[in-house]
Each structure stands twice: as C-alpha cells, then as structure tokens.
C-alpha cells in the first residue's frame, strides 16, 4: 500500500471524526460547533477528491 492509499485511509478517518463530532454537537444542541464540524467534514471530503484527482497517475500499491 503506497502513501497515496494510506493518505486515503487518513482522509476517511478524518472525515468520520469531523462528521462524528458534528453529530455529537448537534445532539447536545450546540448548532454552532455542530455546523463548524460538519463544514470541516465537507472540506475534508472536497480535499480528498482533489487529492485523488491530482495523484491519479500514482499507484495505490
């Protein structure tokens, strides 16, 4: 598994964490930090797509 594949694992874990935090903050009625965490999650996913496009010629192995 190359650094590209491991970075994809990292991006997945990071987006899970941010969306998890968003759900948690919304559940306790904290809309501000819930929204911020959700926005961060969307940002991480957009970054992931851009990174995959940029490195499409690099092997996953």
């Amino acid at each position: 598994m190359s650094l590209k594949a491991f970075h994809l694992v990292f991006v997945t874990a990071m987006s899970s964490l941010t969306f998890g935090c968003a759900l948690w903050r919304f559940a306790v009625g904290d809309a501000l930090f819930g929204s911020l965490a959700a926005a961060a999650g969307v940002g991480v996913i957009i970054y992931g797509i851009l990174f995959l496009k940029k490195l499409k010629h690099v092997s996953f192995l």
């Binding site: 650094l3 491991f6 970075h7 694992v9 990292f10 874990a13 990071m14 964490l17 998890g20 935090c21």
Partner: peptide, 17 residues
Amino acid sequence: SGLFWHFVDLVWIFLFP
C-alpha cells in the same frame, strides 16, 4: 517516512475522541 507519519496521525485521530 510518510507512512510512519500517517500512522502516528491516525493514532491521534483515535486518541482525541
């Protein structure tokens, strides 16, 4: 070295929550 660093980062992503 990047693989090692990503592992260290990943551990923190579990440690933090």
